[in-house]
Design a binder for these strands. Structure first.
Length: 513
RNA sequence: GGGCCGUUAACUCAGUUGGUAGAGUAUCUGCCUUUUAAGCAGAGAGUCGCGUGUUCGAGUCACGCACGGCCCA
């Protein structure tokens, strides 16, 4: 392959051979595999069907004492899993078998399974996947153990697993080779189990409230719905530039115009921005929209949904995150945006209505503020620096400036602000909700202002979307909508400090230059 | 983009003022039928991330690059 001159250098599998390294351990394993094969043991058969799950055996039989188990010696069980440890003696061995549900110790005796099969068993390696059949018993230390009558190889493993005591701890290797991380680390398996539970809980929660789950384009001609830089791509057959969506918002609201009065989408967004402990270029967002509701109606729904997730994962709504207590019990704190700047940020009142002072303070705090950016943007940057990190307990912040909220309905009493909240837990934004702007003329004006900002160099400004305005001209019922960051919620409920710990395959540069 | 830290055997890690590269686990060989980080005896296993430089001599010092982590932007 490597010496094929026709091989394109850009080929995605270039260098594939380079990472398929060869070392003594692998040569030994392949040698033993060859011996097994020659003895008539298939290395990669696909005819094994385990009947039992380890966790279910434990649930059913771990409460029985040794005598009871011996009395049911003719009851046979069949499990399959990966060999995680072998403790071998001359004519018998203990192995630890791990399946998706847990792990169980098994005991193999030469005199029980026969000298020939026992000899072949000795050629197996830690990491191999095997099936075993036998009965349950208790060892001297009372550990529930399967007494193996017969075994069969299900899948040969050529690579040796990490050391049993420390396991795999190298962060880079854990992310690049997540499969290995999952084999070795129960905590990783638990984290992604929790993630699945959270997603399922949210789906059930919304469906029970009459929401319809929908899927809208991830490849968009006009990327809208959030202040973020999009990824660009290209469709060959249509000869057309496309963007990966930064949010599904404008499509979901088109569906509300269409009469789907309660909709949600729970799927991936893409933002072409920096990577950090709380940002991955692709991330998962819930967005849901409810007609005949305002942003205030979303507050109890949000509280209820988060509590449902916490109960599903942790069983409680009070827990610790990174050694600090979090209490999700409703009602959550509710604080006005400007008040939060004064009370939590310690910002002088004069800054709140003075663009120059706000920009000055934002810059003092190290934020990049472009010339021409308005008061709202500057205040938002001050908020990010001074207030957000302090919002440890769940807090709704309301009364956001209009100029940073181009899709939100203007407040009826104060035209400087919109009917919107963001909410924060553990010093992080967890979500954003507002009464949707459904006046098409107002929306068109907001898009025009965004276009001006874009001209001025704001590459996070919204794109003009005339079809969306046209949809609003047909009439969108008054609607409240909300977005929730699923990765961050998962971090919160699994006590993980980094978003990469809750994304199975976080984005990394390639190993090889 | 900037700062700090890391990269040594399959894994987890030592490696002193620059002087032939170490341990534990894993592996291999022998013994061992209730172990559970099993035990005992022996053995093998390394482009020290990559490159350049300094030096008689570099895992170690300098510079550059790559990848990763944390912090800042």
């Amino acid at each position: 392959m490597a010496d094929n001159p026709k091989q394109k250098p850009e080929s995605p599998d270039k260098g594939g051979a380079r990472i398929l390294d060869d070392n003594l351990l692998m040569r030994q394993r392949r040698q033993k595999a060859q011996e097994l094969k020659e003895a008539g043991v298939p290395l990669f058969p696909n005819n094994h069907r385990p009947r039992d799950l380890i966790a279910e055996l434990k649930t059913q039989y771990d409460r029985l004492d040794g005598d009871r188990l011996e009395a049911m010696d003719d009851m046979k069980f069949s499990i399959a899993g990966r060999i995680m440890a072998i403790r071998s003696f001359g004519k018998a061995a203990f192995i630890k078998l791990q399946d998706r549900s847990g792990s169980l110790q098994c005991h193999l005796e030469r005199d029980r399974i026969g000298a020939e099969r026992y000899g072949l068993f000795k050629k197996l390696d830690v990491g191999d996947i095997i099936g075993v059949k036998g009965s349950l018993f208790r060892t001297r230390t009372q550990e529930l153990t399967l007494r193996v009558d017969s075994w069969n190889l299900v899948t040969k493993s050529y690579r040796s697993l990490p050391e049993k005591f420390h396991g795999l701890t190298d962060v880079e290797q854990r992310y690049r080779q997540r499969y290995l991380d999952l084999i070795m680390n129960q905590e990783t398996r638990d984290t992604f189990q929790a993630r699945s539970t959270i997603v399922a809980t949210i789906r059930n929660f919304l469906m029970n409230k009459g929401f319809l789950e929908v899927e809208t384009p991830m490849m968009q001609i006009i990327p809208g719905g959030a202040a973020a830089r999009p990824f660009e791509t290209y469709h060959n057959a249509l000869d057309m530039h496309l963007y990966l969506r930064v949010a599904p918002e404008l499509y979901l609201k088109r569906l509300v115009v269409g009469g789907l009065e309660r909709v949600f989408e729970l799927n991936r967004n893409f933002r072409n921005e920096g990577i950090s402990i709380r940002h991955n270029p692709e991330f998962t967002m819930l967005e849901f929209y409810q007609s005949y509701a305002s942003y205030e109606d979303l507050i109890p729904i949000t509280e209820e949904m988060f509590c449902a997730c916490a109960k599903a994962v942790k069983g409680v709504t009070k827990f610790t995150y990174q050694d600090r207590e979090i209490d999700l019990t409703p009602p959550w704190r509710n604080l006005d945006f400007r008040s939060s700047l004064l009370e939590i940020g310690g910002v002088p009142p004069s800054v709140l209505f003075d663009v120059d002072k706000a920009v000055g303070l934002a810059r003092e705090l190290g934020a990049a503020v472009r010339p021409g950016e308005g008061l709202g943007k500057a205040l938002a940057k001050i908020f990010d620096a001074l207030v957000e990190p302090e919002l440890w307990q769940p807090t709704f912040i309301t009364g956001y400036p209009l100029d940073i909220s181009p899709l939100s309905r203007t407040n009826d009493l104060d035209v400087e602000i919109v009917d919107r909240f963001e909410f924060f837990i553990a010093g992080r934004e967890m979500g954003n909700g507002f009464s949707e702007l459904n006046d098409p003329d107002d929306q068109l004006g907001r898009f025009r202002e965004q276009a001006v900002a874009r001209e001025a160099g704001d590459d996070e400004a919204q794109f003009m979307d005339l079809d969306y305005v046209r949809a609003l001209e047909y009439g969108m019922p008054p609607t409240a909508g909300e977005g929730v960051g699923i990765d961050r919620l998962t971090m919160l409920l699994t006590d993980q400090p980094s978003i990469r710990e809750v994304i199975l395959f976080p984005l990394l540069r390639p190993e090889q230059a």
